[in-house]
Design a binder for these strands. Sequence first.
DNA 1: ACTGGCACTCTCGCCTTCTGAGTGCTAATT
DNA 2: AATTAGCACTCAGAAGGCGAGAGTGCCAGT
Lengths: 364, 364
Amino acid sequence: MEISERKKKILTAVIDAYIATAEPVGSKLIAGLGDLDLSSATIRNEMAELTAMGYLEQPHTSAGRVPSPKGYRLYVNELMERQRLSMEEAEAINQSLNLKMQQLDKLMSDVGKLASSITQYPAVALAAPIAATISRFDLIYVDVNTFIAVAMLSNDTVHNKLIHLPFSVEQGMVQRLASVFNTNFVGISEDKITPSLINSAERACGDTMGLTSVVAAFAIDTLNKAKEGEAIVTGASHLLRQPEFRDPDKAHEILSYLSESEHLLGLPSADADDDIQVLIGPENVAKELKDSSVVIARYNAGDNMRGIIGVVGPTRMDYSGVAAKLRYIAAGLSKFLGMPEAPRGFEKLQIKEMTIDEHQEDDR
Amino acid sequence: MEISERKKKILTAVIDAYIATAEPVGSKLIAGLGDLDLSSATIRNEMAELTAMGYLEQPHTSAGRVPSPKGYRLYVNELMERQRLSMEEAEAINQSLNLKMQQLDKLMSDVGKLASSITQYPAVALAAPIAATISRFDLIYVDVNTFIAVAMLSNDTVHNKLIHLPFSVEQGMVQRLASVFNTNFVGISEDKITPSLINSAERACGDTMGLTSVVAAFAIDTLNKAKEGEAIVTGASHLLRQPEFRDPDKAHEILSYLSESEHLLGLPSADADDDIQVLIGPENVAKELKDSSVVIARYNAGDNMRGIIGVVGPTRMDYSGVAAKLRYIAAGLSKFLGMPEAPRGFEKLQIKEMTIDEHQEDDR
DNA sequence: ACTGGCACTCTCGCCTTCTGAGTGCTAATT
DNA sequence: AATTAGCACTCAGAAGGCGAGAGTGCCAGT
């Protein structure tokens, strides 16, 4: 059956009201709004049909209507109006984006904090796993049994590790080791680092003490860490304010699900190159999220990194507002992190160029 | 009034029962245990006196008794028996301690996860803030407008930062800069890095482009980060399983308190050099924790670092079990991290030496 | 095609009642 | 003097009953 223009209006009104109040909405309420000039009886009929069509649901025979996932889907796809942020909100986000940029994980947790405090929902920050390679390798000789291994990856992050040895080495050996690694370990992916490669490297620099394998282990670890991706959840407590999570068991279920970051890494469905992605209730694969919705935005963090910032809430979520806020944050991050000539660390430049001045992006 | 031996026994029994059931305990229950050969009437009388003395409380006139904070205090101080871990528990902890050691923050979050999964309470991991100094400084020249700054701190951690420049520098300049920093910035605390010091360094290496201040900013940031300390909360969702936090408002209050890490840094009271510290209900300064208890253990992470691992729960907490578990974890960590000759990165050695074989430490 | 009206349904909040665990006290027992 | 048995009393919490109110569906009238 076709869904008439009027039905759409009514559905929108119902969803808006339900999002605002969290209570089943009745025909009278909608009529009272005055948006449509119809009596409650007419609206009742329309609502009955919307229910039959699967866009609305009835908790029990004599209660108002509640949107079904299908209804929400229609709503986010074409009904809801794209919200603009208020000046204050935009300003607040800009302020926070001016935070000094740092290590990736620190960045993620800061972004998560920002998103969750702005949206008032728990936020998850993901670093999209990317198979990186080592693009540069150094060993810094500290003293006779200590050196620092430094690996710069193709995604422009740098990792290091302090290595203490239970025996002593001469500086020459450390230098030889570094140059061997720079020749043989640069530009290859983690699975290419085989025992035989390590062995030949060992021979190449005349190492008899297993030094090579220690350094190789660091290289492997580092690459693995980059590949693994990471997930951070922030502001989990916001969830408890939502009426649908007042039941401690429900809250517990979802919170403990969120706290196992492994789950989250599979979150973003592979395709979807949209700016914003919404997963409503049962659209989530994880059964723990069947009653919840997730809104996801992507951003580019530097040349070879993509980050994802998402928000979790009840299906009755302020999709429009959350989407607008996330979109704005993601755009700001992309702009900030993508800037080639205003690098992290150059605070003076940053502050000047950081402000995102277009208040909203083009429409779809 | 003196507290008789018998009263202590009864108090212990009441607290043990209350910890197990979370329900007010009555005289009959205690009598039924058979530990003391007394009738319920006698126990009733004793309990009445214990109440008068302030060790027990009565939720309402005709209910069982509940331990007061004062009661718990006596309990943890002298009544509770020092629990031994079961072999399985000890083994589980040993297993997890074998985790590959990594960056400090990663370590903290891993330790937190371990503690919270073992104790089934939310855990907080704190890095005790320590004023560190730079002990070594390097700059790695990558290309004409990129280099990596590496600072090794007195607490044996290494920090780095990739610095992109909006202009180009020659390698010689970078080398000069590094040696100037190694001469002037090593061994001094953060507040000694003044603008005038930076200025003279700038002159010393003939830098006209503000390079020096960028590198100095990195140095300051790094030192600040070390000084600040850090707090990570893990396993917050466990809290929701405790009956005393079934009220979502209470749960929300405490969870949002915990999520603001700044609060937590002040947690451990300065003194107390005990291995384990217990803060019961109102003994906590923060009003959000007035109904909760905190158990804290300290461990030594390397030469100049101390870490703290704590657990938060209701006042009705399994103090004995939690203390034993934390003590064991902390001892394991101290042993593991303190080992001078089995360094991080030397997996082969680690695995062999890591197992903590004394199953329990000496008594106090 | 819409609306007013009406009978009907069902949840929720409120009140009452009832039950049972637990107490405090007294008198009997050791 | 200490312990115990017995008993009357208290009170929170569960169970049941009741009414109000919000909402529905449907029909007849505009």
